[in-house]
């Protein structure tokens, strides 16, 4: 695959163009990567495709090998894998809190204990997500390092 980078004038809007024979998984991965770098993650709701700003995402959940992005009120399906999002959003205050959830810690209102050594995060929209026992220490460490 040839990569061409062309300098354009200050007045023009920056763009990325991909020339391909077929839009396959590989091309979709590149598109998703670029969108993520731009601060958006693509997701679908119904038939419509949306670019969801990372700052609006509350958490990403994986259910039955499908990933879902949750914002304040909406839920979008996305093609990416949870571990990919975990890696991509590491520097943006997202943290893995259980086997199936990556959480935006900026959307957490408070934390309270749940049963059996687990903790429950109350989000700004009133939703609750569980930090499983395995991830509690990593969560504590992450927050204490940030302060």
């Amino acid at each position: 695959m040839n990569i061409n980078v062309k300098k354009i004038g200050e007045t023009e809007e920056e763009y990325i163009e991909i020339g391909c024979h077929v839009r396959d998984g590989r091309i979709n991965d590149i598109v998703r990567f670029v969108e993520n770098l731009d601060g958006n993650i693509s997701g679908t709701k119904g038939e419509k495709k949306y670019a969801i700003p990372v700052t609006e995402i509350f958490y990403i959940e994986s259910v039955d090998n499908k990933s879902f992005i949750y914002s304040s009120k909406d839920c979008y399906e996305t093609t990416g894998k949870l571990y990919e999002f975990e890696e991509l959003l590491k520097g943006r205050n997202f943290l893995r809190i259980s086997k199936s959830v990556v959480l935006n810690i900026m959307k957490v209102e408070s934390i309270r204990p749940a049963l059996n050594g687990r903790f429950s995060c109350i989000l700004r929209n009133g939703e609750e997500v569980i930090i499983s026992r395995k991830y509690v220490n990593a969560f504590k460490e992450f927050i204490s390092k940030k302060v």
Binding site: N93, I111, R112, P113, L115, K140, K146, V147
Partner: peptide, 24 residues
């Protein structure tokens, strides 16, 4: 007793989180 220990931990975590969110 474990629940009360966890409650204390949760309080500290919430305070740390708030401090981080405010500093950001």
């Amino acid at each position: 007793i474990r629940f009360f220990f966890d409650k204390k931990s949760a309080k500290i975590m919430t305070a740390d989180l708030k401090a981080f969110q405010e500093s950001l």
